[in-house]
């Protein structure tokens, strides 16, 4: 083995914190400047929020809560999925195809720094989403249970972990065009029947039992429990942790850089 201290400073490299911060800011700007990404991550959730609150096109049993209090947690769950999953899988798939991942892996950033930068970039976009969606919801009369804010933030982090891992699993194994199609299709399916906005128990047939075990249903139920003050179901946390572990292990084993 070499006697050189492996943790010694690399004279040519910027500090790890600076590299990851640069990558996170680069990723965040790339998403916020891309029209299609903005449409999916900001415009669609806000339109859904306003549409579901101001119209009764979709029947919802709110169990006594106001419609805005009931819908907002689900829209926040959807926002998390659009950024951590849809937007991230598509961006990563095209970066992979264009060799961006390989090029950045040869710079001092490395593969670990690239991953850290991506996760921080997702979280930064989610902060923007929470501010915009939360602001619109408050203007529409949303009254979240304050004691639920911290558990809700924790659930959003867990949901981000699960869906980012799924995004990387998809982006690292399929062709870019395939990821584009699958990511959008999965998003629509999860909105309609995944338990994000409409609770699993109100879904038809087998979905009523299945959706609570999907990461989408777990995230939606968890956020509703936290922000409506009925408590976070333990099942939500267990399901999200399990999916994060499964997707993470899959991505770690199957992700192809080329």
């Amino acid at each position: 083995m070499s006697t050189a201290n492996p943790t010694a400073a690399h004279p040519g490299a910027a500090s790890p914190a600076r590299r990851v911060a640069a990558q996170a800011s680069f990723e965040t700007r790339a998403i916020l400047r891309n029209g299609e990404q903005l449409l999916v991550t900001i415009v669609v959730p806000v339109l859904l929020l306003v549409g579901l609150v101001r119209t009764s096109l979709v029947e919802l049993d709110t169990a006594g809560a106001t419609r805005i209090d009931f819908v907002t947690p689900g829209v926040l769950a959807l926002a998390c999925v659009t950024t951590a999953f849809t937007s991230q899988s598509i961006a990563t798939a095209f970066d992979r195809r264009n060799g961006v991942l390989r090029l950045l892996a040869t710079t001092p950033l490395g593969r670990g720094g690239l991953l850290a930068g991506k996760i921080l970039g997702v979280l930064a976009v989610e902060v923007v989403q929470v501010v915009v969606i939360g602001g619109v919801a408050l203007a529409l009369g949303w009254q979240p249970v304050l004691a639920g804010l911290l558990p809700a933030a924790g659930l959003l982090l867990l949901g981000t972990a699960a869906f980012t891992a799924l995004a990387l699993l998809l982006a690292g194994t399929l062709r870019a065009e395939g990821v584009l199609a699958v990511a959008n299709l999965v998003l629509v399916l999860l909105v309609v029947g995944g338990g994000l906005i409409v609770p699993p128990s109100e879904l038809p047939g087998a979905l009523a039992h299945l959706a609570a075990f999907l990461p989408s249903g777990a995230l939606g139920e968890g956020l509703r429990g936290a922000l409506l003050g009925t408590g976070v179901p333990a099942l939500s946390v267990v399901v999200l942790v399990a999916w994060t572990a499964a997707f993470g292990a899959g991505a770690g084993r199957l992700f192809r850089w080329h």
């Binding site: 050189a4 492996p6 690399h10 004279p11 040519g12 490299a13 680069f26 700007r29 790339a30 400047r33 891309n34 095209f94 970066d95 264009n98 060799g99 961006v100 390989r102 090029l103 950045l104 040869t106 710079t107 001092p108 490395g110």
Partner: peptide, 21 residues
């Protein structure tokens, strides 16, 4: 790799440039 990356420069055949920036 960690010790080498700061000392090695790479130009890939397909460029490796993100298209949106």
């Amino acid at each position: 790799a960690v010790r080498l990356r700061p000392r090695v420069g790479v130009m890939l055949q397909d460029g490796g440039l993100p298209t949106g920036v």
